[in-house]
Design a binder for these strands. Structure first.
Lengths: 148, 148
DNA sequence: CTTGAAAGTACCCTTTC
DNA sequence: GAAAGGGTACTTTCAAG
């Protein structure tokens, strides 16, 4: 259910996606609005669930996770709860998409080394056939959607 | 190149990844540190490139992008610049991973409708064979890495 | 790393268009 | 209904210990 957003709302969203810590006064300046009007719009976007949160983004390399991989999993069997429990435990799984097609799940996995990645994939293999591809590089994490 | 991070640094990172807008005083309270010491650590993490930025996260549904898909692309030919130029232009491509294996690129694409997705995939198909899977659901965007 | 003071910022309320 | 202005509490920053 899409909200009714005007161009200013999209501007605010673009700014906040680019820099989630920008002070409201500075944000107001950038979107050519008063401080309180800007505050109200941001609060409205948060309350409406358009803005779901604010996160710091980190460099995996510098955190000691130089290995990134895309793992596709063809889950066998119909009981998916044990698999979901593994996802909760395994912080190495940064993201998990359930998709149509042969590969029911597409996972993004960060690991400290190849042996570490192997252990994670072994754990995943318990739930079905896996297909792993290492990631050479990725575009900057943020590519926000534009006004449709 | 991994930095030397102690347990407090990892605590700070966890808090900031969970709530990037938490006030420094509150953050200091949560990690049992003084405000200035916390500020210094955060600044150090930012300066070291461990923290790469702060982003607001948005709900694609509520922004009018109810369709999410994983597109795998087998790029044909060796000149990848035109493809990268398309990525710049197409804000619908939220993420693009270059990977090993048959499918050189794995993309996450948001679209306003199935016809819209079709147009994006058509544009991508110009560069090679594509394989598209719709996304049913995804885990909450944030799954941060833990202390190794 | 902690404490303390000053500047800046955010929040709430009222006023105005 | 939406935006601008003003007073108060809070946060951030910088100094010194």
């Amino acid at each position: 259910m899409a909200e009714t957003l005007d161009a200013t709302d999209w501007l605010i969203l673009a700014e906040l996606q680019h820099d989630g810590r920008v002070p409201l006064t500075e944000l107001a300046r950038r979107v050519n609005l008063g401080a309180s009007a800007t505050t109200e719009r941001v609060k409205r976007l948060e309350a409406a669930g358009v803005i779901t949160g604010y996160r710091a983004t980190v460099d995996l390399d510098r955190l000691g996770y130089p290995v990134l991989a895309v793992v596709r999993l063809k889950h066998s069997g119909s009981r998916h709860e044990p698999f979901h429990r593994l996802l909760e435990e395994r912080a190495e799984v940064l993201e998990c998409l359930r998709t149509t097609g042969d590969d029911c799940y597409v996972l993004k996995v960060a690991a400290t080394s190849m042996p570490h990645l192997e252990r994670v994939v072994n754990a995943l293999s318990f739930f079905g056939d896996t297909n792993t591809n290492l990631v050479y590089s990725q575009t900057l994490p943020f590519r926000g959607p534009r006004e449709p």
